[in-house]
């Protein structure tokens, strides 16, 4: 579970309406939702994002409603990983369940700047900032969380477990 990409920064308390405004909830297709990712901040935000880029957020990222569309929109926008000071509780669950990798790093998030080239190993629990040569240690992902992510989310994970049990 290694990721390399350019950092995009957003601030504290980014809510699910900012990530994907309610008017776009008429779809559950990640690609479609992805076009409107962060439209609640600016409709143009998505234009600067390339496949594989990494989102870096402040505190309480994903607060607000329990909509599972929010992590889907990020995935649809090509963002596989969010690093934040902290995540809102339901978003945190939904993120992993939808197959989005989330790393909570506390104050260390402040050292990551817009445009920094980042390399993250979720298994080892290491984030390298290739631009500044700094390194951040995080708690490595537990085994079964990795399995959920490797399956592509909770639905395919359960599906796979059931199939192998049958």
């Amino acid at each position: 579970m290694r990721y390399t990409g350019k950092a995009h920064r957003v601030g504290d308390h980014i809510d699910t309406d900012a990530i994907i405004p309610a008017r776009y909830l008429v779809s559950t297709d990640p690609r479609e939702l992805g076009q409107y990712c962060m439209a609640g901040i600016s409709p143009d935000w998505i234009k600067g994002v390339e496949q594989g880029d990494i989102l870096v957020a402040g505190a309480n990222f994903g607060c607000g409603s329990s909509r599972e569309h929010a992590p889907l929109a990020l995935l649809g926008a090509g963002i596989p990983l969010v690093i934040a000071r902290s995540f809102a509780r339901i978003f945190y669950r939904n993120g992993f369940n939808m197959g989005l990798v989330l790393l909570e790093v506390g104050d260390q998030a402040d050292a990551l700047r817009e445009g920094d080239q980042l390399q993250a190993d979720a298994e080892e629990g290491i984030i390298r900032n290739l631009t500044t040569q700094q390194e951040i240690q995080v708690r490595p992902l537990p085994d079964f969380m990795r399995k959920i992510l490797e399956s592509g989310g909770l639905v395919p994970y359960v599906r796979k477990r059931l199939e192998s049990a049958a």
Partner: peptide, 13 residues
Amino acid sequence: GLGSTDIAAAMVL
């Protein structure tokens, strides 16, 4: 309390 997909997984597993 959990979301619906979480609850589905808990119901199954």
